[in-house]
Design a protein around this nucleic acid. Structure first.
Lengths: 254, 254
DNA sequence: TACACATATTGATATATGTCAATGAAGAAT
DNA sequence: ATTCTTCATTGACATATATCAATATGTGTA
């Protein structure tokens, strides 16, 4: 499905975050100015210095520990969330299980479709690794959409890209068997999220299952088969794809 | 993902189109002016008379016979398509089978996500019943998005509504069993598309299967079970839901 | 160290669902 | 009418996948 949300992943994943606990900082703290920030989401590239300052003035920073919920499906949604470090997931809470729509890494944003409808979240978001994020008031965001056509166009473009990504996702979920779906998720992780080949999977097996729309046990079994066939190795959550070509073929033959 | 596309369904379905063959009119023909047209898509409500005229001047009308392809996944996409009569479907051609993302009825539009990306279609569209449609040059559409913030905001709102619809669709497809999925499709047809209770199903069983992500045979079997349980009746493609409450429960229990 | 707890793994089993093949029914074309 | 073609229906069967239960592994804490 279909396609899906207003989230984008365009930048490279910098470095795997060590699992050391962060100090909890949940109070508002204006850190360095947006204009000078190297964690600025690329969607803001078309904004003037004045407009950046507008974003900056309504912005505040929050830290989340791994596992913490960032926002919950059904709740009101007054913020544009920009993930500046760590890894988060957005997921729909369905009938007894979750479907992960995407993983969000720095510097990407989370901006649900409810904001232009009824100001509610239509999916939940949670920190997979310890995260920091900048929150921006949506009214500022909407104001800029109205006032800056380049920004509006860029936004629509990103929404469109996300739709296209989601088309592939729905087809994978509804028309491929488990092997193909797991293959797709592995490519998503290695190419789009961790962007390395031997990569440390900071997501759980349950998350892997929620990404591929199957039970945790099934996901584990497929992984085991892939190991036995020499397609990949896993040791203590570090996965390496050994036979990309074969994995690609599994993805394509469903 | 469902989650998916830039299509919207807001208006009521007027009347079931009889299956008489239309005269094929595939040449350009400017019919009556947009400004006076009662088939105007509601997304245009915020446009000034001057802007409406801009749409009108770049617009032309086409007829499609049932079964004909309107456009094909992968091809370039220079038009905004507004369905003015009949019924169309948009569908992704996946691995051996299709997934219908939505049915499009008058007066709704088809406007794929590729238009702001690489100008290609990411799904196909075909006439289910005989159709007429108005095509508008996308450059005109994009120009209006840039120049009229109300129109841009309305457009984003509709894209968002579609995303939300697609969330439900993906959850239905990936987390419900066949009975629940068929129930969802029946509600979609009776509440959103035909908008009547005894309604004539102008879509085929294959379409029904492609809407619910299962094989044609399975879809037929579930329908048969529903008939046997007295939930609905079908005679010569006229379906009537007899026990809405039970059908709703089947939808919710997956 | 030992315990408690969460997460990962494995096996056995039930079942939901697709595939294949055959038959029937309804139009369209001759 | 009769043939032809497409679509709908039904049954038999194979299998992909979830569920349940048991065990293992790891991780933080007292």
């Amino acid at each position: 499905m279909f396609y899906i949300s207003l989230v984008l992943s365009l930048s490279a994943y910098p470095k795997i975050r060590p699992k050391q606990p962060y100090p909890m900082v949940n109070k508002t703290q204006h850190s360095s100015n947006c204009a000078a920030c190297n964690c600025k989401a690329s969607i803001f590239k078309n904004l003037s210095p004045l407009e950046i300052e507008l974003i900056n003035s309504s912005r505040f920073q929050v830290s989340y520990k791994a596992g913490e919920i960032i926002f919950k499906q059904g709740t009101p949604s007054p913020y544009f969330v920009c993930v500046t470090s760590g890894l988060a997931k957005i997921y729909i809470e369905g009938y007894g299980k979750n479907l992960i729509l995407a993983l969000i890494k720095p510097v990407d944003y989370i901006f649900g479709p409810g904001i232009y409808v009824d100001n509610r979240h239509y999916y939940s978001a949670a920190a997979v690794e310890d995260c920091t994020a900048c929150l921006v008031d949506v009214t500022v965001f909407k104001k800029l959409i109205r006032e800056n056509p380049d920004f509006a166009e860029e936004f629509i473009k990103r929404v469109s890209l996300q739709s296209i990504f989601n088309f592939d996702q729905v087809i994978s979920l509804t028309q491929k068997q488990m092997h193909g779906r797991i293959a797709d998720v592995i490519f998503y992780l290695s190419d789009k999220i961790y962007c390395q080949n031997p990569f440390e999977m900071t997501i759980s097996r349950q998350d892997l299952a929620d990404l591929s729309g199957m039970s945790k046990e099934s996901a584990i079994r497929i992984l085991k088969e892939f190991k036995e066939e020499g397609i990949l190795t896993i040791s203590s959550n570090t996965m390496e794809v050994l036979n990309t070509k074969q994995l690609r073929q599994i993805s394509e033959t469903g």
